[in-house]
């Protein structure tokens, strides 16, 4: 079986408006923070190559608009996702309460093959601010109750935990990919399907 080929991981960032989705993506990809990002309209993505367990992996990170009414268009962008990052603002409890509906909406629209084990990662962003309103404990408890979703406290502004969080995102997305192939006797067929979705993965990404 071929191995060690380039892998493309599609990651979707979701969360309420203004929680810092675009900032997190830019901090991770460009190592930059700006106060001048505009509200995202429609969708955009950035790519970055990372190394996970000696493998070169290209992360394609998708950023979408946070206002609820724009989600009905999300389906076109969620398709074929390997990991979903849910972001809330630790200073805004409402954005934490929305996590559940963001997760459910994603599962419905993306329709992953195994919704129970689809990798999510939760980021509590803006920990640099001092008017914190959602405690780490509360967030952690919620994540544990949801099948132990990994949780990170981040600051896109001060680059706190961003690298670490995205490393985990890449690793979990990759594990999911590999696992999906182990379940299938004919991994090549899976590959064809993935290509049908309009994604440009090259070759087999099975590590075994």
């Amino acid at each position: 079986m071929s191995s060690r080929k380039k892998v493309l991981l599609k990651v979707i960032i979701l969360g309420d408006s203004g929680v810092g989705k675009t900032s997190l993506m830019n901090q991770f990809v460009n190592k930059k923070f700006s106060n001048q990002y505009k509200a995202t309209i429609g969708a955009d993505f950035l790519t970055k190559e990372v190394i996970v367990d000696d493998r070169i992996v290209t992360m394609q990170i998708w950023d979408t608009a946070g206002q609820e009414r724009f989600q009905s268009l999300g389906v076109a962008f969620y398709r074929g996702a390997d990991c979903c990052v849910l972001v809330f603002d630790v200073t805004a409890p409402n954005t934490f309460k929305s996590l559940e509906s963001w997760r459910d909406e994603f599962l419905i629209q993306a329709s992953p093959r195994d919704p129970d084990n689809f990798p999510f990662v939760i980021l509590g962003n803006k920990v640099d601010l001092d008017n914190r309103a959602v405690s780490a404990k509360r967030a952690q408890q919620w994540c544990q109750s949801k099948n132990d979703i990994p949780y990170f406290e981040t600051s896109a502004k001060e680059a706190v935990n961003v690298e670490l969080a995205f490393q985990t995102i890449a690793r979990n997305a990759l594990a999911q990919e590999t696992e999906a192939e182990l379940y299938n006797e004919f991994p090549d067929q899976i590959k064809l399907n993935a290509n049908d979705n309009g994604r440009n993965r090259d070759g087999d990404n099975c590590a075994c």
Partner: peptide
């Protein structure tokens, strides 16, 4: 927690059009 059942979302099904409300 993972179970496989006929209720699971089928693979590769996709929305061609959606309308809210």
């Amino acid at each position: 927690m993972s179970t496989s059942s006929v209720d699971e979302i089928p693979d590769q099904s996709k929305d061609l059009f959606t309308q809210d409300g």
